[in-house]
Design a protein around this nucleic acid. Structure first.
Lengths: 98, 98
DNA sequence: GCAGTATTTAGCTTTTATGCTAATTAATTG
DNA sequence: CAATTAATTAGCATAAAAGCTAAATACTGC
């Protein structure tokens, strides 16, 4: 059974809008943007007043939504903003209403 | 204590993205759009397979987010899509990343 | 004002999300 | 290789969201 284009879009909307529903996760994207689109987990978590495991989960949700990517660098994890996908998924959805 | 522009925007993002996080609520907006932007509660609920009280709650969340408005017409409630606000709030947020 | 229609409100249950601490993994350094 | 640092995973508690049925409200038409 193949997945149609429209079905994949719906799944994209689902996972992206779910990720964007939490203030901390929206703020992570903003913080990443402000820092040039790339930061370590530690640099991110120190700007929030939640525990590290809580941030790890938020980052995981953003990653599954495709809004950020991770790269292992030694014992650090570098999180990267996927701005194109953010613009494309949310932009496409919004344009549908125009 | 007055509320700054930025604070009001943050509150808008909060309530709008929370409203958009549920598939049924996003679909309500699409259905409203397809029907010219205005439908009664009954016309909306018959297109979904959830109970009427459940839909009433979804509509209330969309209304509090400002994404739809209600008008009482006799014993009916006409729900109206607020496309301008949808475009403005989500569009502004998205443009911040450009 | 009684019967019927449109819709919401109340109240409850189940599911999902969020947050924490403690334990674990993995890489680095002395 | 022991200690330290960076980060995740496990496991649990609480809060919030979502769903339902039953009851209530409000308007319409006879």
């Amino acid at each position: 059974m193949t997945i149609s284009r429209a079905e994949k879009d719906l799944e994209d909307f689902e996972v992206v809008f779910a990720a964007l529903s939490h203030e901390a996760r929206r703020k992570v994207l903003v913080v990443l943007l402000g820092r040039g689109g790339q930061m370590t987990a530690g640099q991110i978590v120190e700007r929030f007043n939640c525990s590290w495991p809580t941030m790890t989960r938020h980052l995981g949700i953003l990653e599954k939504a495709g809004l950020i990517s991770v790269e292992k660098v030694g014992r650090e994890r570098h999180y990267i903003l996927n701005n194109e996908r953010l613009q494309r998924v949310v932009g496409d959805w919004l344009n549908f209403f125009k």
